[in-house]
Computed example of a mutant assay.
Amino acid sequence: MRFQLTDDQRALRDGVRELLARRFGREALRAAVDTPGRLDRALWRELGEAGFFALRLAEDDGGVGLGLPEAVLAFEEAGRVLLPGPLVATHLAAGTVSGAADGSVVVAGVDGGLVEWLDAADVVRGDTAGAVALRSVDPLTPLHRVGGGAVADFGPVRAVGPSASPQRVSEADAGDFVPLSSADTAGPPRLAVPGGPAPGRPATDPVAVLLTAAEQLGTATRACELAVQHARTREQFGQPIGAFQAVKHLCAQLLVRAEVARAAVYAAAVTADPADIAAARLLADEAAVRGARDCLQVHGGMGFTWESEVHLHLKRAWVRAQRGGGRTECEELLAAELTV
């Protein structure tokens, strides 16, 4: 079976890429890195106006009226440029949370899991009581960890406005996810909206899993591009390093993993089958994490420097891999499908 993008899908992909190139280029990325935790709300509203969050919302409800394949293309482009913010949660809230389609920032409470961008949220879906701020490996993705607890009571929760914080974040020791102080929980009440996962149930929506896979695919694609570009221009011993067999192999493996993941992600967007989505997520996580690591190998020590964007792709891939629907859950779902 041949699977190719339609002309309309290509136009959508190119339009999203053009918008992000204009509004979130290299300078904007560096500014976001230098001011961690700050969400560009002007960009967020522009994404809402462009229909990014309302792609799958029916036209009668004010949306664009497209499907899951088109959403996957948009999120792939967002992953490619490391666009920060709770993109998946806000996209899923369009149509059920007032203002989400237009650019209100929505985050979803996860029972016993990680919550991204809690401090910047206008609306919280689910329970975030007892959230503890973490020090994230990714400077573009502030994290909180939410413990267990009932999510049936959706009364006001103690939270923050756009510029305040429910936790006082202090310096912490090195580590991937280091709990920080949660002593300061003062702040105005914020609206809590039903929709979080029930206790004891997987905190995964198949669409959220697939859109995360699409973001990972964007990172895998960008890592391949950066590695090939560096291999062509960096010279050692009088020739480009891409002429050396070891570097050739790394670049080839980058491309293979990215294209295999692309086929799986695009196919899962068409079928929307949970098993297909699980397989796509596994392949996309691997393509993003291993691809970014191999891209660092191609760049050598230069890839680890703060000025380079390579290490940012690796760190974001690590954080995305921690979202619901990750490796263990997808493997268990596929195992259950195979043993039926």
Rank of each mutant, 00 (worst) to 15 (best):
P179Y: 07
R281W: 01
F304N: 13
V193K: 05
D276V: 02
E309C: 10
V81A: 07
E331W: 05
K315N: 10
S170Q: 11
L82R: 03
P84S: 07
P199R: 01
G148K: 09
A278L: 02
T185N: 08
A246Q: 13
V33R: 13
H311W: 14
G195S: 08
E76Y: 12
M1Q: 08
E332R: 12
A150Q: 14
E309A: 14
G175T: 02
Q4P: 07
A120W: 09
E18G: 15
A152P: 02
K248D: 09
R13H: 10
T221P: 00
A269L: 05
A121T: 05
A231E: 06
V265I: 03
G67C: 02
V319K: 00
L134S: 04
R56K: 02
A198Y: 05
R290M: 14
R56G: 13
V72I: 03
A174D: 10
R168K: 07
V88T: 09
V105L: 05
D273T: 03
D61K: 11
D102V: 02
A278E: 07
R22V: 06
L87W: 00
L282S: 06
L143H: 12
D7W: 09
S163Q: 12
H299Q: 11
R262E: 13
G79C: 00
H311I: 13
W318F: 15
R80P: 02
G51R: 01
L312W: 03
V106P: 09
L282T: 04
L55C: 08
L20I: 15
P84R: 02
L191K: 07
P142T: 06
H311M: 10
S181Q: 13
S163K: 09
R125A: 11
G65W: 03
G326I: 00
E27M: 07
H91D: 15
L20R: 04
Q253Y: 14
T96F: 06
Q236Y: 01
L55I: 12
A272K: 10
L118H: 02
L338H: 10
P84L: 09
V146Y: 10
E171N: 03
H299K: 09
A272D: 14
